[in-house]
């Protein structure tokens, strides 16, 4: 297995000049991807793949130990089915709940991801963000989901954003770092591309669209642009970076379109949870309903799928 931890690249381009994007062309491309028809075995395979890529998430001010335990249980035992179902990839929680989650998923293969760095706004000094990160890692987080400083980004302080990610990356140690761009606050696809480049050069293991607290969250055009950035980075540096669209993906059909997009833009080597995740709280049950529909031929009711 390849080492899954990326390092910052000290030699990076001038971030003022990054690749430009034509939004209409991107919409055409993603709309064409949604025309792909995923049927039968391909559908079943895709649905199982999607389940196994989910970061089951709870990020509420009202989160409690019990709430997190229930969710972790769901991540491990998604549904009682006639076939063997995978677990989700990870659970995603606030740092203060990492310890609880970690204990609950132990031995299941489900990882614990923690949002850190003054999530979701990122409006805190760097030392606070570093402390936040180090705390989450010390509590046992396998993965850290950080947010970039969008204010600084909009001010054109691209190197500040880069340096900050580098610092957080170092604080992560063995934990994999997902860098949240919060694309809903960036304003254009050109800026999504720029932020993607900054994050990857700063050593991101994943780039992630959104916190889930801002609308719009993940969209196909935004994800497409980020996937293209990942592909360009891979072509130039032979370094794989993962992708995590988060927020707003709640149906199996949409999830499958995302997977087709990953396949066509990056290739099948990205089609596993080392390199692709869905940040979602409601997606799992819709995927499960679709799986049961494939198995039984009957359309399903939400009452038969556990809500945790």
């Amino acid at each position: 297995m390849k080492n899954l931890l990326n390092k910052p690249l000290k030699k990076h381009p001038d971030f003022r000049h990054t690749t430009t994007i034509d939004q209409v062309g991107v919409l055409e491309r993603t709309s064409r991807i949604t025309k792909r028809s995923i049927k039968n075995e391909a559908k079943m395979q895709g649905l199982k793949m999607a389940l196994n890529m989910i970061d089951l998430t709870t990020l509420e001010g009202a989160d409690t130990d019990q709430k997190v335990r229930q969710m972790c249980n769901k991540a491990k035992n998604l549904h009682v089915s006639s076939i063997k179902l995978p677990t989700t990839a990870a659970v995603c929680v606030y740092p203060s709940l990492v310890k609880t989650a970690k204990k609950e998923v132990e031995g299941s293969g489900v990882k614990v991801a923690a949002v850190a760095t003054a999530f979701p706004s990122g409006q805190a000094p760097l030392d606070v963000k570093l402390a936040d990160t180090k705390f989450a890692v010390s509590e046992g987080a396998d993965e850290i989901d950080m947010v970039i400083s969008r204010g600084r980004f909009h001010q054109g302080e691209y190197n500040y954003v880069y340096d900050e990610i580098c610092a957080i990356k170092e604080a992560c140690g063995k934990a994999r770092l997902k860098v949240i761009l919060e694309t809903g606050e960036l304003g254009s696809l050109d800026k999504v591309r720029k932020a993607s480049d900054i994050a990857m050069y700063a050593g991101a293991d994943f780039i992630k669209t959104s916190t889930g607290k801002i609308s719009p969250a993940a969209t196909m055009p935004v994800t497409y642009v980020m996937l293209q950035a990942i592909r360009d980075f891979y072509t130039q540096h032979n370094i794989m970076v993962g992708m995590k669209p988060a927020g707003g993906i709640s149906t199996a059909k949409v999830a499958l379109h995302y997977l087709i997009m990953v396949k066509e833009v990056l290739g099948e080597q990205w089609l596993n949870n080392n390199w692709f995740r869905f940040g979602a709280s409601r997606l799992a049950n819709d995927v499960l309903m679709q799986i049961e529909k494939q198995l039984s031929g009957a359309y399903q009711s939400a009452d038969y799928f556990s809500k945790d």
Partner: peptide
């Protein structure tokens, strides 16, 4: 030539 569809009442990017 394409017309970008961001802002106003257009769908978000």
């Amino acid at each position: 030539h394409p017309i970008e569809q961001i802002g106003g009442s257009a769908p978000s990017y």
